[in-house]
Nucleic acid binder design. Sequence first.
DNA 1: TTTACCTATTCAATTAGTGAATATTCATCC
DNA 2: GGATGAATATTCACTAATTGAATAGGTAAA
Lengths: 185, 185
Amino acid sequence: MNVKILPLNASEYALLGFLKAGPCHGYELHRKLTEPDGAGMIWGIKISNMYAQLDKLERRGLISGRLLENEQRPARTQYSLTAAGKQLFEEWLHQPVRHPRDFRHFFFLQLFFLSQYEPEALDSLVERQLELCQAWQQNLLAARESSSNSIDFADLTNRFRHSQIQSMIDWLFWIKSEKIKIKPK
Amino acid sequence: MNVKILPLNASEYALLGFLKAGPCHGYELHRKLTEPDGAGMIWGIKISNMYAQLDKLERRGLISGRLLENEQRPARTQYSLTAAGKQLFEEWLHQPVRHPRDFRHFFFLQLFFLSQYEPEALDSLVERQLELCQAWQQNLLAARESSSNSIDFADLTNRFRHSQIQSMIDWLFWIKSEKIKIKPK
DNA sequence: TTTACCTATTCAATTAGTGAATATTCATCC
DNA sequence: GGATGAATATTCACTAATTGAATAGGTAAA
């Protein structure tokens, strides 16, 4: 068997997150996923792709679906979080992202769900993410080559990354210092 | 027929870019692509994936390969840029990126190749990219909702994007004002 | 001469992603 | 009341992207 645990991507965590609020079927989940004022601000996903992700999550035992028939509407499959799914989501939700490239997709999603489900935990996540960002900065500074008069490609990328992360830090401070209350949609 | 022209991704442009220096075979191209002080700073690519990209570029008529046999080494396929490939690369090389998400992958690659092939064109590209970045900023400011005391998710993402782009702008100014000479590797 | 690593490419298999197809219900217009 | 089209809900077939392993000869060193 030897099931290789591939990490979930952002929209899969989002599916778990929306299902935490209660059972739901694919079509409705897709509407939530793409709502222009919500998760849809972060990325887009085609509906057929999302159905494939639901299958994948079910195969991994994180959600389970059952067919609802016998209604006014076309048959639909209602999915619910399993205990495993709930646990995975909760763990993920409170972990700051480990790499800058994940910031945009994952950290935003964490803010999104935390502000809905557990707003009192927001400060702590922001704080720990801030510390990680500052550690990234230190690593970049440490990696800078001894200054010479000519700039090479490594210098360019180092400076760029540093300034991108600085902008994350500034933004996190803004959230923190303004004691921002994120309005749940 | 009806060939849908999918846009090339960063590593495919990089392949065209390296082939502009002269014919080369896959294994060597992969070494260039992943050189830790060069393009390898921007992304990674598995070698089997790169061979698939070479096939794709050949099918699209941007490069052409011929088998070199009769040597000391294992047989290899030497690729060269076609006229169409050269033209596509040159056009791309001088166009600033149209969307912030491309900045990291594409703009860096453009700097990389321009600094090697046409350093006198660097200033102009930086200048035009700067203008585009400033236009992105204007759009974000225009999209900001009338201020209220509560912050919603749209505000968070708008502020974040704005600050990320500001960091690009700062970095471009740094390149520009320091009259930086990028050292070709 | 065996071992191990470097060169060079290909292949089979998996996973991701897209567009179109299917099928039912609902609202609206003539 | 019947036609038309939009909304609901999911599936399917196809293509593209990605990965790990397989193949196979060459070189260097023990």
